[in-house]
């Protein structure tokens, strides 16, 4: 099957910039995947997101090479408006990406732009709110919502356009731990229940690692790793070089492994870690 995202040898320079923001990027994502994308600030994560939804080069110009294909469309040759029905985008700042006053109108915005009929807009708004689990917020003013709720509205507004791919650029960066977990869990649900391909740019590896099967690491405009979070977190040199957050439970078992007292898989979350610790400490502790 044709991959839903295919980035081929993509290079991009912002105007007036000597150094490339992205260089020689090759990335293939199959439909239905849930992909985490991480890396230090300035690694090129946002640039990649903007290349996928066509903002680069349609809205943000620059020198580029290579090709970005999403659902068979060349993003450089397809107007953003056309791509909008294929790939949905959510950004970091919950405040700046919302245009309306009322939740319902925010969801309507994209549909109206695509000249969807009024009845269909109503139906799609209902469906999108249901999918995201915020049906009760439909007539609420955006002003009254928390940051986490606003991000859910942004996700619902993207989902209303029935995209096959969602790309989210650090949607949790301004949220508290609870809000962060809720958003990532919601994305998992959208991926599992509706088959939406998800590309989540995220710094909070403790939340991300247990929930994504595949993690791509960018550094200085290049992809430096593309594997399961377990494999990536096992590479101490890599995580140190990128300054990646290593979940404390993973860090602990990495140390135990190095000391030669642990041979199993690296746990990524507390439950897993507790089980492994119980095994390690012997039967007396098996209660856990």
């Amino acid at each position: 099957m044709e991959p839903i995202i295919k980035v081929e040898n993509f290079t991009f320079y912002y105007p007036d910039s000597q150094a490339p923001a992205l260089e020689g990027i090759n990335l293939t994502v199959r439909e239905g995947e849930f992909l985490g994308l991480t890396g230090p600030a300035g690694a090129g994560k946002t640039t990649l997101a903007l290349a996928l939804n066509g903002i680069i080069p349609n809205f943000q110009g620059g020198r580029m090479g290579g090709k970005v294909m999403v659902a068979g469309l060349d993003t450089a040759k397809t107007p953003c408006a056309r791509l909008a029905g294929v790939i949905g985008s959510v950004f970091q700042d919950p405040e700046a990406q919302l245009v309306a006053e009322v939740v319902e109108d925010e969801l309507a915005f994209g549909l109206e732009n695509l000249a969807v009929s009024r009845e269909e807009i109503q139906r799609r708004i209902g469906a999108a709110l249901e999918m995201v689990g915020i049906a009760s917020l439909r007539h609420r003013s955006l002003r009254e919502l928390s940051g986490g709720q606003k991000q859910k509205v942004a996700i619902a507004a993207a989902v209303a356009l029935r995209p096959r791919v969602l790309v989210l650029d650090e949607p949790t960066s301004e949220l508290d731990p609870q809000g962060t977990v809720e958003i990532v869990a919601l994305l998992q649900r959208l991926n599992r229940d509706y088959g939406i391909t998800i590309l989540l740019i995220e710094q909070k590896i403790s939340v991300l690692a247990p929930r994504v099967p595949r993690l791509v690491c960018l550094n200085k405009g290049r992809i430096v790793a593309d594997a399961s979070p377990r494999q990536i977190l096992a590479q101490e040199k890599l995580t140190t070089e990128l300054g990646l957050e290593v979940p404390p439970v993973t860090a602990l078992f990495r140390m135990l492994r190095r000391a030669g007292v642990y041979q199993g898989d690296l746990p990524l979350e507390v439950d897993e870690g507790q089980r492994e610790l119980g095994r390690l400490l012997g039967s007396r502790a098996s209660r856990a």
Binding site: S206, L252, V270, Q274, L277, G278, R284, R287, A288
Partner: peptide
Amino acid sequence: QVIQLARPYQEQGL
């Protein structure tokens, strides 16, 4: 995480 991890074994005095 560290505190959550250690709690059950702490309670058992390990």
